[in-house]
């Protein structure tokens, strides 16, 4: 019994050590003190994103699926960091992000957006991202509810203009790019984001065990 307890203690302290690597604090410089995102740096809220999606995006940056466009300065910032990290460091970073306590985000309402129109537009999104913007691991679609509206606008624009979803081997990105291209203009993007913004934030979910 004592031995089992000791093993358990050692294991949990190892996990703790992993998630407390000072290096992982790097994430919080850009993404905010609790990984809640930072508008000034254009860094998204990581706390709503499940492990599998965070992992997938590290791969996307490494594969040049994100950050390769010449003018995508913010994407390039993250890409440079992703390129310096090995698989173990990526897992440490994800574990570190998971340990951050949720933070209440400031509400910023876009008064020029048409939420009703956004709701109509969102119907084509919900097949993958879920009716509540909760995401779908099987379809590799991230949660959207609880993400910063400026970040959603930025990413829809990135898909639309080809900064994302423009590489042959990025099949999920390509699918998203088609939907983003179906949004005719900035107003449509603003409307659909305003609707997503109105959805109650779902807790981080579908934490798939590896």
């Amino acid at each position: 019994m004592n031995k089992i307890w000791l093993v358990f203690m050692l294991l949990s302290s190892a996990v703790l050590a992993d998630s407390k690597q000072p290096d992982a604090q790097y994430c919080l410089v850009c993404h905010g003190s609790a990984a809640q995102g930072n508008a000034a740096i254009k860094a998204p809220n990581l706390t709503i994103l499940p492990d599998w999606y965070l992992r997938q995006q590290f791969i996307a940056f490494r594969n040049n699926w994100r950050g390769s466009a010449t003018n995508d300065a913010h994407g390039k910032e993250m890409q440079a960091v992703a390129n310096t990290m090995n698989d173990a460091e990526i897992e440490q970073a994800i574990a570190f992000i998971r340990r951050q306590a949720p933070v209440k985000l400031p509400i910023s309402v876009n008064t020029t957006a048409n939420v009703q129109h956004g709701q109509q537009l969102y119907q084509q999104c919900q097949a993958c991202h879920g009716a509540q913007g909760e995401g779908n691991a099987q379809l590799h679609a991230p949660p959207l509810a609880g993400q910063h509206n400026w970040y959603l606008v930025q990413q829809l624009s990135a898909f639309k203009n080809g900064w994302r979803g423009n590489q042959n081997d990025d099949s999920y990105g390509q699918i998203m790019r088609q939907f983003a291209q179906s949004l005719p203009d900035e107003q449509a993007i603003a409307d659909v984001v305003a609707y997503i913004d109105s959805l109650p934030s779902t807790q981080p979910l579908l934490r798939t065990s590896r």
């Binding site: 998630s19 919080l28 410089v29 003190s33 930072n38």
Partner: peptide
């Protein structure tokens, strides 16, 4: 945060020289 541990200190005054773009990401 220092080496992964969290500490809190109180003071009469705080002089904050952190770049504003980073302060905006701090709770």
């Amino acid at each position: 945060l220092k080496q992964g541990e969290s500490y809190t200190e109180q003071a009469d005054y705080c002089l904050n020289c952190i770049p504003a773009q980073l302060v905006s990401g701090i709770e």
